[in-house]
Amino acid sequence: MTGGLAAEAPSARRAGQQTGSGAAVAALRSPLAGLGRLALYLALPAALVAAWQTAYELGYIRPILLPPPTKVAGAFVELAVSGDLFRHLGVSLLRVLEGFAIAVLIGLPLGIGIGLSRLLDRLTDLIIQLTKPIPPIAWIPLAILWFGIGEAGKVYIIFLGAIFPILVNTIDGIRQTDHRHVELARVLEVTRGRFIRQVVLPGALPNIMTGLRVGLMVAWICVVAAELIAASSGLGYLITDARQMSQTDQVLVGMITIGAMGKLLDVVLRAAERRLVTWKSTFSGR
């Protein structure tokens, strides 16, 4: 045991850093534990759903306030079979991806520029700090005046929600460039372009990825607000419409679908992050 540990000391040390230590963690990492890990992941949500259903069966919850899981599942199947759910989902997904894409296209270069340039930072800081706290929903009147009630206004609201996390995290990531690496680049007379490409951007990548993930999440948060603007489809519309009809079960279907889509896209971005940032060893809980 000790011999094996000594032989692979560097990798063992890294594994230790990544997962924390302790027998419980080690047990979770064994090949047999794949199923156990999945069970652990789902246990609490499953218990919550079971408690919810039980509370309904025992008559503690009025279904008009909170329909039971079975009823929500029924509404889900109904909306899925009719195809409405996927239509709404497709429309919202497109809006989210459009708003997010524009936020990335503007936020990423702008964030890199501000991170690198004191001048640009000084020029833009007050505008960013003042605009950032304004909730996207407050922009709706202006969005309608500027873009009308078509798609553009809705995408604009989502864009506003997504751009700030991307912008702020990108700036932070670039500002966190290790001064020791800056010194190294000076000693080696590395050109500015190469310094940015090989030192600054790779170092900022973990923060940038965090910004993208938070930005995408906020984009989903904003979809309901965006679809308050004269929408006739989309998950936000589904929720608003169902509320007016007092169809609480459909409201929940819309909510859960948004949650699931957010989770799904986050999984995609996380996977991308793991592929791009292989060199970083950080504490991931114990």
């Binding site: 020791r180 690496h181 090989q198 030192v199 790779p202 170092g203």
Partner: peptide, 10 residues
């Protein structure tokens, strides 16, 4: 330097 200062991503 005292620390190796290698770029971890290279």
């Amino acid at each position: 330097f005292q620390e190796h200062r290698l770029l971890p991503w290279l």
